[in-house]
């Protein structure tokens, strides 16, 4: 007889809902997403969940497991003691069950000035110069950082702040050795880096272990400070190369 675990899964939509308990037989090494699939296949075929790769590559299966923003495919059942509660991401409006409306993120993505190469490729770039951008390009856009960011989650300041995901997007472009655009004023104003109070929850939840706060947001704040708070540096700054 296989061991059974109980999953309490949120079922509902914008008008409300509640957690429903499902019993699932446990296999060795099983992850929460396996359990959700098991429920789908045998008990609730219409249980809505987003997933693609089940290998922590695509960042689709973001949810909150016992209150922790997690990828379901990377959360093992045997790492959870006691009851298992699975709920949709809180920072985004729920569509149905575990599926949320994350379209806001795609709107913000469009507002960031794209990569603007200074010269035609192929580039001569050294590994040491691309390391920082490469770290940020590891992002799988699971939006767990957006979900956990209290600015978006608790204060719903989606008009004032683009959120950690897009801070690293901006940082990736700004630190690209071949990028010629200047997004610092944009970072300070439209993207609202000042709304971040560097409390690092985004860095804690990132499944790709990207140092969002230390390597992207704080360096961006320093770049903003160069422009807006440092008359000495402003005096010596070369005009931007375009």
């Amino acid at each position: 007889m296989a061991e059974m675990r109980t999953l309490h899964v949120f079922r509902g939509d914008q008008s409300g809902g509640e957690e429903v308990a499902y019993e699932v037989p446990v296999e060795s090494g099983m992850v929460v997403l396996d359990a959700v699939h098991q429920i789908q296949a045998t008990q609730a075929p219409d249980l809505a969940v987003r997933w693609n790769c089940k290998a922590a590559r695509c960042g689709s299966c973001s949810a909150e497991v016992n209150g922790h923003p997690r990828l379901m495919c990377k959360t093992r059942l045997d790492a959870i003691e006691g009851e298992i509660h699975v709920r949709p991401m809180k920072a985004f409006p729920v569509i149905r069950d575990l599926v949320t409306d994350v379209s806001w993120n795609y709107e913000k993505a469009k507002q960031i000035e794209p990569f603007a190469p200074k010269e035609p490729a192929p580039f001569t770039m050294y590994q040491r110069d691309v390391e920082r951008s490469q770290q940020f390009r590891k992002c799988i856009e699971c939006f767990l950082c957006q979900d956990v960011c209290h600015v978006l989650r608790e204060h719903s300041a989606k008009e004032q702040y683009f959120g950690p995901r897009f801070m690293i997007k901006i940082a990736e472009l700004e630190m690209h050795p071949m990028d010629g655009a200047d997004r610092v004023p944009f970072t300070s104003h439209q993207a609202g880096v000042g709304m971040c109070n560097i409390t690092k929850c985004c860095q804690e939840v990132c499944p790709e272990h990207i140092h969002l706060t230390d390597d992207a947001i704080i360096p961006l704040k320093e770049r903003v400070a160069d422009r807006e708070w440092d008359p000495i540096r402003a005096l010596f700054r070369k005009p931007a190369v375009r």
């Binding site: 490729a121 192929p122 770039m125 490469q134």
Partner: peptide, 19 residues
């Protein structure tokens, strides 16, 4: 592939700074 670099892809580099 060069076109991809032109659009912002950041490949691992050789010591000479090439892809």
């Amino acid at each position: 592939v060069v076109e991809l670099e032109q659009w912002g892809a950041v490949f691992d580099r050789t010591p000479e700074g090439r892809i």
